[in-house]
Simulated scan of single mutants.
Amino acid sequence: MEKTPSTAPVPAPRDGVPPGAIKAVPLRHWGRWVSAVAVVALLAALVLAFVNANVNWDVVGEYLTYDTIVEGAAKTLWITLLSMLIGVVLGMLLAVMRLSDNPVLSSVAWGYIWFFRGTPVLVQLFLWFNLSFVFETLNLGFYKDEMNDVMTPFLAALLGLGLNEAAYMAEIARAGILSVDHGQTEAAHALGMNGGKTMRRIVLPQAMRVIIPPTGNEFINMLKTSSLVYAINYTELFRAQDTISSRNLAVMELLLVATVWYLILTTVFSIGQYYLERHYAKGSDRAQPPTPLQRVRAQLGSFRTKSRVGGVTV
């Protein structure tokens, strides 16, 4: 038979003698400290391995600002921006077509997404670069030229990256549009707005809260995927370091140079993505997340703040 625990009466304080102060004992999380020490030890071992490796760090520092490397980084950024622009604009159009009641538009959009998401981007780059095997000349009536002269490495890279990205952006935009309550569209139609104005003024501004975060991730992913265009002889960052390392045989040093540049570019745009997400999150029910500067201030303020429990500082 289970016994109920007995509750002893709390003795009343003696006259004139205040009750004893409560002594708060913080809970110790030993597992957190052990895991933190293990992670720091692994990171230290990794850093030490690179420091003691046969890497000429002077060469790394020298080539970080080398003209060919800087130009390659600029071309990487340029091809990423243009490809992403094509992907976003065409992706939005494909998303609207996919949601259209017109079966032809919907089928064409579905087929486009099916093809470009179902084949590797490297294969698509080579297909565009070798398009002259299918079309020897480009004849638009007002313009005619050899396809080999038209399909330069830059144009092949732009088409390969941009059209591939459009397929992914179409699904992201479609998910964002579907996330907006259908009642918003019905209310806009009741006010006399047509389909196009409803999409531009009502649906898309609300859908941006869902579209922006994955779009930022796609941009950062595109920045790294652009390294594949070295295979079709477009001299971006990765090909620039590969060309230099093939001459001076400083393979690891130049790979580290490219790594630093990719990290710089992705970090800058990650910060931009963060503030863009904050902008489009305005008006939502959720509170605005603190900025990194606000987090630092909060952490510094927590050290100065003294919590009191029962009049005793803990």
Rank of each mutant, 00 (worst) to 15 (best):
A73I: 11
F115Q: 07
E277W: 00
V39W: 14
L256Y: 04
V121G: 04
T225G: 11
V180D: 09
P289D: 08
S100Y: 09
A8W: 06
T65K: 10
N233K: 05
S246N: 12
L254F: 08
A173C: 03
Y280P: 02
W114V: 05
N248R: 07
A109R: 04
Q184I: 11
L94W: 09
L263W: 01
V88Y: 00
I220A: 02
A44Y: 05
R295K: 13
V312P: 13
R32E: 09
Q206P: 11
I212P: 02
I271S: 03
P214C: 10
A36G: 14
L256D: 11
P214V: 06
D285W: 06
V312F: 14
R278C: 06
V37H: 11
A36F: 15
V25A: 05
S245C: 06
V59H: 12
P18Q: 04
Q241T: 15
G20V: 07
F238T: 15
V229N: 06
V180M: 10
V17C: 08
T65E: 07
D149T: 15
V39E: 10
D58V: 14
L255K: 14
L223V: 03
I212W: 00
F269C: 07
A156I: 05
F219Q: 00
T7V: 07
T65G: 09
L46P: 02
G87H: 04
G16P: 10
A95D: 03
V309C: 08
K306W: 01
N194T: 12
I212F: 02
F129M: 09
A298T: 14
F126T: 10
N148S: 12
I172S: 04
L204I: 07
A73G: 14
P289Y: 10
D149Y: 11
P9T: 01
D15V: 00
N217M: 00
P213M: 02
I264V: 15
L81C: 05
F133K: 09
S106D: 11
V121I: 12
N130P: 12
V10L: 12
P214R: 02
P213Q: 01
L82T: 05
